[in-house]
Each structure stands twice: as structure tokens, then as C-alpha cells.
Design a protein around this nucleic acid. Structure first.
Length: 467
DNA sequence: CTAGGGTTAG
């Protein structure tokens, strides 16, 4: 029997089509392997990489059996669905297993909760949470940690925090998940405060924790804490893997230390698409367009395929450096060679680039060719360029109106609109400008509400003081 | 005879 299983599984490894899989299914039925719990799970696991749909058909054919498929088989297919493009199927299977009289175990919950977080279905996730508590699985660390992630994946960080606070034991994963959750919902200061508590209970951060902390520093533009994390890495001999290295070079780059970022970048043993892209955007943001182009070429030579964000970096470099021909070439390459659909940001770079170069008509043609309505950044850039190049007379009035319509609360837009409006209109009249803005509350620039603490003993990760 | 949780660009 064992050799038969082995043989069938080896066939499975070679299977690439559903026809092969159907032949295998016939074989399984003939040899009664569908009664073998161990085999079924292995089969589900391997065949779902070929086709999850087929795997489901196979699994459904087992459902009417008596006894029903073992919980292990359910867990396996639920896990496979949580990794697939239709994670909601794992939720359906979760209720189905209860309908055939089986009880979810401590492995079932993490898989189904992962799907809930992925699909952002807080309703289902909450229901599963109640079940977790009712069945007494809330003391399981894995279950607790996936609950936390489910809530933060659903954008409900308060619930995530509540799960975290009520956990009876927290490990480094719980702390890292909580910190990552705060970073993801754009509360980097809360992330640092969680880390402060983490130090108080003597829980050591690992490299995953540090990646999230660096991300928090990047958002706060806090080079001091970022640097202290770097020294912690060096003092504690923590390996600079791709994730940590990329987070570190991003922190330096976004905080204006482009030279240090380049140093970290070149010291990385392994670089992935993200490392290259962040480095390219970094030098581009520092006005070093030639370096961006050279890095982009090196990246392609290293066999990496640029994605949508890589092109954002290189296009913004072209725009800042006024490299119109290169920019057009990259845009064309993106669409025609790599088949990437341009986003608002890509169009923004092109329009900005053409506008700065005084190619107003061509920039206008790009706006008209966009499949979506231009956003305020693009409109401001284009209207500003028209003004700077003295081409306000042929400006499309609709674009000017559109800007005030989609972003009526930004005062500067009225100034810009007034500058490019024809004299016959009354935008230049202060009274009517005030009238147009009546009742509008203008946006204030965000301020920094906290003060740094100055204590940089090496290896010690410093903390912000909350003001 | 088997399985589970956390990380990076906007």
C-alpha cells in the first residue's frame, strides 16, 4: 500500500494538466486510496498547486462518504484556499465541515482567520472569533496571533489591540504583528510605543520586528531612531537579509541620507526587485537621474523584471532631470514590452515631464488619452506648466474647473485657477475669490507633535518622547 | 506517518 501511495504521489509531481489529474483520480478510486487519510491530505496539498479547482472537485467527491473526510483533509484544503486567489472559499468550507458534524481544531482557526483578514471580512472574522472563545482555543498562541492579524488586516486596529492586550502570553510574533499593524494603519508612533513596552518586558526584537520598526522610522522621517536600529543590528550581529537591508536602505534614503542608503545597498548579498526599486526611487528623489537610469539598467541586466513601481521610480527620475526622450522610451517599454497598465502616477510623471519641458500640447494629449479622470496633482502640474510657458490662452477651461471641483478645500488651487483664468472672468477679484471659498475649511500642513530624545548609546534602540 | 502565526516601496 505504501509503495502505491508513493508512486501515485510521484505521478502527481509530474502532472501539469487537469487531464493528468483526472487520470490520477481514477487511479485513486480504483485503489481505494480515497480512504487513506494521510494520502488525501498529501494529494490535496500537491494538486492544488496545479489546479485548486480540480482539487475542490476531488474533495467534493469525498464529501458524501461515510465517514466524512477527516478534519486534517478539511484543514489542508482550507489552508490551500487561504493562499489562493479566492480565500473566501475557505470560509465556506469552514461552515461546511461543521455541517457534516466535524469540529474545527486548533489548526483550522489560523487558516480560516488568515482568509478573513485577507478578504477584510470583519463580520465573518468576528463570528469565527466568538467561536474561538466558545471552544476555548483563544489560549493557543497561533490562534491568538492570527486573530490579531485578522483584525489589523480588516483595518480595525483597535480590535487588534484588544486581542493583543487580552492575550495571556505574548511571543515575539505577537509583538511584531502588533507593531506591523500600527505601521500598516499609518500610526507609526503607536508602533514605537508598543516597542517601548516590548523592551520593558524584556522581549527581544528579531529581524522581522526591526523591519517594521524601520518602516515606522521611515514614515516619521526619524533618522535618529532609525540609526539606533542600524547600530543594534551591527552590535548584535543580526544578519542583513533582503527584507531588513531593504527596510534599512529605504529609511536612510527617505530621511535624506542617500549616500548611506547606497552603501547599505551595495553591501547587500541578495537584492530583490524591491531593493532595486527603492534604491532607484531614492536616487531619483535626490535629483540623481543618471544614477537612477544606470541602476535601472543594472537591475535589468541582473535578470529582474521591473514592475509598475519600478517604472514609477525611473519615470520620476526622467521627469526631474528633464529627460523627455528617455521618459517616453521607458513609458513605451513599460506598456509594450512588459505589458504593465499605466497608473495615475505614471501618467503624472509623463505630464509633469512634458509640462516642464514646455511641451504643453503633448502633455494635454496625454491627459486626454488617460482612461481615468486626472487627479489634482496632475491638474496642478499641467495648469502650472501652462502658466509658466505662457500658454494660458488655449488652456482647457474644463480642467481648471475640474481641479476646483475635485479638491475644493485646497487654497492654493484657487490661486492657481485665478492665475490662469481669462481677465473677463472675475477670479482675479479678491471679493469673488473669497466668495468662492466661503464655507471651505482649508487644509493645514501636518505638523510633528513629538520631540526626540537624545541618547544614542550604540546598540540601544532609542525611543521618541511623546509631547 | 502530516499542518499553523509576524517583515520591505504608495
Amino acid at each position: 500500500m505504501l509503495s502505491r501511495q508513493f508512486q501515485t504521489l510521484r505521478h502527481l509531481q509530474k502532472s501539469t494538466t487537469t487531464t493528468h489529474l483526472l487520470q490520477l483520480q481514477a487511479l485513486i478510486l480504483k485503489t481505494a486510496l480515497d480512504r487513506d487519510e494521510f494520502f488525501i491530505s498529501k494529494f490535496i496539498q500537491s494538486s492544488s498547486s496545479v489546479s485548486i479547482e480540480f482539487t475542490r472537485l476531488f474533495f467534493d467527491s469525498l464529501l458524501p462518504l461515510d465517514p466524512p473526510p477527516p478534519i486534517f483533509a478539511f484543514n489542508t484544503i482550507i489552508r490551500e484556499y487561504s493562499k489562493s486567489s479566492s480565500p473566501l472559499e475557505s470560509v465556506k468550507l469552514f461552515s461546511q465541515l461543521q455541517r457534516v458534524g466535524l469540529k474545527p481544531d486548533k489548526f483550522t482557526y489560523p487558516f480560516v482567520l488568515k482568509s478573513c483578514g485577507w478578504c477584510s471580512v470583519i463580520g465573518v472574522g468576528g463570528a469565527v472569533h466568538s467561536l474561538v472563545v466558545k471552544m476555548g482555543f483563544d489560549s493557543d498562541r497561533y490562534v491568538g496571533n492570527t486573530l490579531l492579524r485578522m483584525y489589523s488586516g480588516c483595518g480595525t486596529i483597535g480590535f487588534a489591540r484588544q486581542v493583543f492586550d487580552e492575550m495571556c502570553e505574548r511571543d515575539v510574533v505577537s509583538w511584531s504583528s502588533m507593531i506591523a499593524g500600527y505601521v500598516a494603519c499609518n500610526c507609526p508612533l503607536d508602533a514605537l510605543m508598543v516597542f517601548q513596552s516590548m523592551k520593558l518586558v524584556n522581549q527581544n526584537p528579531n529581524s522581522v520586528t526591526l523591519v517594521s520598526l524601520l518602516s515606522a522610522c521611515t514614515r516619521l522621517l526619524n533618522i535618529r531612531i532609525g540609526t539606533s536600529i542600524h547600530s543594534h543590528v551591527i552590535v548584535n550581529n543580526i544578519k542583513l537579509d533582503v527584507a531588513l537591508g531593504t527596510a534599512l536602505l529605504e529609511m536612510y534614503s527617505k530621511c535624506g541620507r542617500i549616500e548611506v542608503a547606497l552603501q547599505v545597498f551595495s553591501s547587500l548579498e541578495e537584492k530583490n526587485l524591491q531593493s532595486w526599486t527603492i534604491m532607484i526611487s531614492g536616487v531619483a528623489d535626490h535629483g540623481r537621474g543618471e544614477d537612477a537610469i544606470s541602476l535601472f539598467t543594472q537591475m535589468e541586466e541582473n535578470g529582474l523584471k521591473p514592475d509598475s513601481l519600478s517604472f514609477s521610480g525611473i519615470l520620476s527620475a526622467c521627469s526631474h532631470l528633464g529627460l523627455v526622450e528617455e521618459g517616453k522610451r521607458y513609458f513605451d517599454q513599460m506598456v509594450n514590452t512588459y505589458g504593465i497598465k499605466p497608473t495615475m502616477e505614471h501618467y503624472g510623471c509623463m505630464i509633469d515631464m512634458l509640462g516642464r519641458a514646455g511641451m504643453i500640447e503633448e502633455a494635454y494629449r496625454v491627459i486626454k488619452s488617460m482612461p481615468m479622470e486626472p487627479n489634482s496633482v496632475i491638474l496642478r502640474s499641467f495648469i502650472g506648466a501652462s502658466k509658466n510657458h505662457g500658454e494660458v490662452n488655449c488652456l482647457d477651461e474644463n480642467l481648471r474647473k475640474l481641479l476646483l471641483q475635485i479638491e475644493p478645500d485646497l487654497g492654493g488651487n484657487y490661486v492657481l485657477a485665478a492665475c490662469v483664468s481669462s481677465v473677463s472672468e472675475n477670479w482675479n477679484d479678491v471679493a469673488s475669490l473669497r466668495d468662492a471659498m466661503k464655507g471651505r475649511r482649508l487644509k493645514k500642513a501636518p505638523g510633528c507633535s513629538w520631540v526626540e530624545v537624545n541618547s544614542a548609546s550604540s546598540g540601544e534602540i532609542i525611543q521618541p518622547a511623546v509631547g
